[in-house]
Every structure is written in C-alpha cells, then in structure tokens.
Design a protein around this nucleic acid. Structure first.
Length: 430
RNA sequence: UCCUCGAUAGCUCAACGGUAGAGCAACCGGCUGUUAACCGGUAGGUUGUAGGUUCGAAUCCUACUCGGGGAGCCA
C-alpha cells in the first residue's frame, strides 16, 4: 500500500490508508488511545481501541513516546474533533523507532531553551508553518521574476573587497589572502545585468555588525534583482507588484499555516499596488509634525521608521534620500542633485525596512568621483567601473530581505524564527 | 561598543533576610471520545560561578560567565 501524506487525506475519505510519521502527542484512557501523528504536512489523530486491536498492540501503543517514528494503517474518516479534520481508525501500527524521552514538551518554553534545541524545535507546528511559508515566498519570488524575463545569475559569496565599504564584514582566510563573506551581490548583479538584461540573485548574505535586535541576523537571505534600462519609477512599480504577489500567494497557499500562527489574513488581504510613498523630505516634515527632533540630512532610526510605518496599512516607500546617507553607487535626482533616486520599503506594523533599492549611476566620471568621496580604493572597483566603459545604460535594482518579509507576513515578533538555523550575535549552534 | 533586564527541579515559574515550593514533563496506577485531556501516587535541588555583608543569604553588595530585550548599523 502506498503511503499517503496527511494533507492529502481528504482524497482518501473512508478508504484504507497508510501513514508514516512521528508521534506528536498522545491521550489515553483505559480502553482507547488517541495518537496525534505528524508527518510534516499536517496532524492527524489515530484512534486505537483495545477491543478491536487486541491486548498486545494496545499495550505497545500505550507506551509510544513523544516523537517516536511510526507507521499506521487504518480507515480515514472525517472527524471534526480531530486536528486536521480527519482521524484514522487504526487497524495496525508499527513503531519504527522508540524515541528517548523528548526534551521539548508541549508546554511553554523559554527562547534560550528552544534556541539551543533548534534542530528539534523545528518539529513543532508553529515552526514548521513558518518554514513552509518561507518556502512559498522563495518559490514565488522566483516565479514572479521568471515571468518577467529575469534570469537567475547568482553572485559569489566569497568576495575580495567590501561591496559598499561601510559595514563590518566577516573575514576569511583565502589560501593566505584576506577575503570576505558577501554583504551584497549587487555589484555583481550589475555586471550580469549588462550581460543578460534582467537578472536576480538569491542567496545568503553576511553582516558582522554586532546587531542584537528582533530584526537582525548575522546571516540572512536576500533576493537581489537588477535590470538594465529600468529606471527609478519602473523599479518601484516592480517592487510593489512583487510584494503584492508574494503576499497574495501566501494568503492562497498557506491559509492553514497563517491560521496556525494566528495571523489575521485581513491585514494582508489589501496589500496591492500602489503603495504609499513619502519622499525623505516629506518624511522629515512628518516626523517634525509629530514632535520628533530631526535634522534634514540625518538617517532615520528604528524609532523614526516605526512612527512613519505605523501610519500606513500598506508597506510605504521612502524615497529620494540625501546622497550623504546612501551608498556610493546611487544616482542623483536631476531635479534635485542633493538627493538620490533610491527608495526603501518599510513594512507596516513596525517590522522595519524590507527592501532597499534604487537607480544606479551609469556615468563613469560621476561614479569615480563618488568612490573617491566615499574614500574607497578605485583599483578595487576597476572591474565595476568597466561596466560604465563598455555600453553603459540606465539601470536599477533592489534587495529584499527574506526573513524580515517573512516575519511581517507571518506576524512573528523576531526574525530568529524566520530561518531554519538562525545565526545571531551570541548564538550559532546548532 | 553602549543601555537595560535576567539566571531557583528536565521545563515554566513562586518563595521580597529566618526549614526551597507549585504546575507540567518523567516513573507507577485509574479512566471507551480525548483536544497543550483528566484523577491518584512516587521521585526529583551545591538556587549560574567566585567572593563579601550578616547570628542567618535564593533573597543584600562586588566581580565574572552565559543569555534576553533595545540602541547604533542595516535587509
């Protein structure tokens, strides 16, 4: 008999089925046992009745420990009292491995205790739901971009120099030479965009800053898209369409998971273009109007971002920042050269920045000036400058932080749950 | 790096200068429809480490270790 996944039980109503999985929980009374079994796709309740299955198997069933692996066979029935809506009247069962006493009970635990057992914590319904939503987000990112003729061109993880030169990098020994783990694939994406037109990369990114907040990881996944001939406005439209598509896909494909996380879908349901926009200057005025002491030219802090984003139900773009607080490659606005054609997307509900992007400088001389202004060594960027020597074109791109997006969509309060094995300031095990 | 909070049974916590306790988990028993089931019983502790104050410290003080939350930086 072929095994059936728990999530497909609806297709096997009143049929004999074969389920393989792990024991999630058990409740028993003298003559009846309820085995709650999980297989990664859902939960199902197996019912073992003493007089039907016999003394011997009943005794085995009663002694199965939490997270033991097992196989069960029986008839699938609709049953509203069962988690998942189906239960299996068990006719036979086989314990594949009797688990040792399981450390993670179904009761409350602290974050420290759970983090040390992340490899087991992932088995809980809530954590599994988050990983399923993450999987859907990653797939949908790829679907969206492929539909729009973007080509996947992954960027290197080991890099010889700092891409943007500003933040702390993880240094590694590259056969005697210093090298660094990538903090952004963008410069490489600009190169592949000039080769292929529209490209994206999707992979891990590393930041060695000693950040210790609910929004920071040392290692996180970033989708970075870059497109030749796309300018500032089109870039923003692409981003709002992408985010809207991602949210709609999750609403459609991960209903059960959102439900499990107690995420109210109505707050996500109206995520559709266009998103509200505020220029940096408007945002500064807005903050001042709320009594915040803020000087034009300073960068927003987490506090400022929260005040701004709380004012909208949708993600909000903050655009046209002062050149001084943004990366060297940002193109200046022709109508106001003090500001650059960059935009950050702030998620609602205080989840912070989920996208940073903008139009890049295509002029060789201006780019050189900006590198010097940022005190970056020109020789390290010669290959990057080549992109402005051989058929330079207007181009734009953006980087989307997967864990922050997932944290917002799922309504969780910390990015550590948004990746299977988080790397944090004081924790990298398991 | 800075600010702030914390560490007591396997887990979550209580005990606020005077004999360290509860719920859950574990183990034993009971229960034919349970819903982090319930009921009865058993066992479980060098109170993070080191020092100090005190007749007496889980409790007050100092240092250290480990961790949580936040700032800066960013996605």
């Amino acid at each position: 008999m072929k095994p059936v996944l728990i999530k497909h039980l609806g297709q096997h109503k009143d049929q004999e089925v074969f389920i393989r999985g792990w024991l999630y929980n058990m409740r028993s009374s003298g003559k009846i046992i309820f085995l709650i079994v999980r297989d990664g796709t859902g939960l199902v309740q197996g019912v073992v009745v003493k007089k039907e299955i016999g003394e011997e198997i009943f005794k085995i069933a009663r002694n199965i420990t939490q997270e033991s692996s097992l196989e069960i066979r029986g008839t699938a029935r609709e049953e509203p009292r069962s988690p998942g809506g189906f239960e299996i009247q068990i006719s036979s069962l086989k314990v594949l491995h009797l688990a040792e006493p399981y450390p993670i009970s179904l009761k409350e635990h602290g974050v420290d205790f759970l983090a040390e057992r992340r490899h087991l914590w992932l088995r809980t319904p809530r954590q599994s739901a988050l990983i399923r939503i993450r999987s859907e987000l990653e797939k949908s990112c790829r679907d969206f971009l492929h539909d729009r003729d973007f080509i996947l061109a992954d960027a290197p993880i080991i890099t010889p120099t700092a891409c943007e030169g500003t933040t702390n990098l993880f240094e590694i020994d590259y056969h005697g030479e210093k090298a660094y783990l990538s903090q952004s694939g963008q410069l490489y994406n600009e190169a592949t965009a000039m080769a292929l037109g529209r490209v994206y990369s999707f992979g891990p990114t590393f930041r060695a800053e000693k950040s210790k907040t609910r929004r920071h990881l040392m290692e996180f996944w970033m989708l970075e898209a870059e497109a030749a001939f796309i300018e500032f406005e089109e870039n923003i439209r692409l981003q709002e369409e992408l985010i809207s598509f991602l949210v709609q896909q999750v609403l459609e494909k991960n209903k059960r998971d959102l439900d499990l996380l107690q995420r109210d879908p109505s707050t996500l349901a109206n995520v559709a273009p266009p998103f509200p926009r505020m220029s940096y200057t408007e945002a500064v005025d807005f903050l001042k109007g709320r009594g915040v002491d803020f000087k034009w030219g300073d960068d927003f802090g987490a506090f400022d971002e929260t005040i701004i984003s709380r004012n909208f139900d949708l993600p909000v773009f903050i655009h046209r920042f002062p050149a001084g607080i943004k990366a060297f490659y940002m193109k200046c606005d022709e109508e106001n050269p003090e500001v650059v054609l960059g935009a950050d997307l702030l998620a609602p509900e205080g989840y912070g920045e989920i996208i940073g992007g903008g139009q890049r400088i295509e002029d060789l001389e201006i780019l050189k000036e900006r590198l010097l202004l940022h005190k970056l060594p020109l020789e390290d960027f010669e290959w990057y400058l080549d992109l402005r020597r051989y058929g330079s074109v207007p181009h734009s791109g953006f980087g989307l932080g997967l864990e922050r997006l997932l944290a917002w969509v799922s309504g969780i309060d910390h990015v550590r749950e948004a990746i299977p094995f988080p790397r944090m300031l004081y924790r990298m095990c398991p």
